[in-house]
Design a protein around this nucleic acid. Sequence first.
DNA 1: CGCTTGCCTGGAGTGCACTCCAAGGCCATA
DNA 2: TATGGCCTTGGAGTGCACTCCAGGCAAGCG
Lengths: 158, 158
Amino acid sequence: MTQTTAVATEETESTDICSPPPRRHPRPDGQDSYTISEVVAFTGLTAHTLRWYERIGLMAHVDRSHTGQRRYTNRDLDWLDLVGKLRLTGMPVADMVRYAELVRAGESTYGERYELLEATRRDVLARIAELRDTLAVLDYKIGIYANAGQSYETARTR
Amino acid sequence: MTQTTAVATEETESTDICSPPPRRHPRPDGQDSYTISEVVAFTGLTAHTLRWYERIGLMAHVDRSHTGQRRYTNRDLDWLDLVGKLRLTGMPVADMVRYAELVRAGESTYGERYELLEATRRDVLARIAELRDTLAVLDYKIGIYANAGQSYETARTR
DNA sequence: CGCTTGCCTGGAGTGCACTCCAAGGCCATA
DNA sequence: TATGGCCTTGGAGTGCACTCCAGGCAAGCG
């Protein structure tokens, strides 16, 4: 395994210049109008969760049909994508709501948003390092179990 | 089963594939007897959590002093270390309890333990991949805010 | 017309992983 | 003897992130 101190430099190398993430939407802009169940199918979230996200302000108010049903746009899908990614980092929902509020507040909050994302980035790097550490332990133990055909286990690691 | 099997010998160094994780204990084996507050200081867990771990079977019964107070050993510290690592992977406590039960059940469960650790290993790898993906998105957005933020700052201070 | 399907709402419920409480035991120092 | 500190217990409480429920509306179909 490489040294843990090499992580930081590796990262700067892997993301030299930002490549825009390629997105495919189910429908092109202009015809982007999805029912809640379509969004469920696309995101893997439940309808409950989608409505709950909107209630707590994690999503801006979603467009409605003339009968009051939700109609999601490609932009909503993108937002949900970002939310999903942030959720994977372990960011609390309250923090994501805060970010959503900053976005709604306009461009005067660019600085704050930058700080928030930077902090999150540091968290992600730290978490990756932790996971690598854990992986080493796991590999070590797996090695023991793979080798230990009928020899008894070490007391040390139980 | 109060009988701790006499496996105090170290046969850990028989494996050559993985480097054994270096462990430093506050006290050498033989004088390893820690109060709950010492373990709190060493692990970062709370006393509540330590007692709770024991109650739910995530730890084997801890030794007691003649007055009934818990006295942790180096082995307990090692176990808590592993638990901490597994917790970082997002493994549910119930699964860790299951692993603890397998360990207590003896060497007939080697296969199952192996499977469990292997599955966890795959989870960890998948999570690392997810985090890298998230990192790319984060870097992309940070790049945007860095540029836009600069122009906003410029516009502000102009 | 009724039936099914899909969606709506506010509020209540769930599961997890702790986290704390109240009441008390032991023991060293003052 | 008293005070303070550290520890014990079972059980209750907390916070988070959903998850579900009851009751109801609107559209499409035979």
